[in-house]
């Protein structure tokens, strides 16, 4: 059984992959507040988003259907963190 601390560590590791992906897409990622809007700031644009969804699928192991996902869940790092980890603590 996975303990809460294991789960938190897994989420942190997953978020490192997410941040690394965004960093490669845009240098400004490191200076981001985790509540800033990734789409509005064009850190994630329509082209990068397709690959970003594949990354999330890779991380979570669950298929992501781009046709049914809610973009609102991907707008900030905190929301992505919450989505990946269930109940994530804010940064």
């Amino acid at each position: 059984m996975t303990s809460a601390s294991d789960k938190a560590a897994e989420t942190d590791e997953a978020m490192e992959k997410v941040v690394d992906f965004l960093r490669r897409a845009n240098d400004a990622t490191d200076a981001l507040d985790w509540d800033q809007d990734l789409i509005e700031l064009r850190i994630l644009d329509s082209l990068a988003f397709v690959e970003f969804l594949v990354l999330l699928e890779e991380i979570t192991g669950a298929p992501v259907d781009p046709g049914t996902i809610d973009v609102e869940n991907f707008r900030t790092l905190n929301r992505i963190h919450a989505m990946i980890g269930g109940a994530g603590s804010d940064r």
């Binding site: 789409i39 644009d45 988003f49 781009p66 996902i69």
Partner: peptide
């Protein structure tokens, strides 16, 4: 088709 839910340019 690879679909992006984010609006275009």
């Amino acid at each position: 088709e690879a679909y992006s839910p984010v609006r275009g340019e």
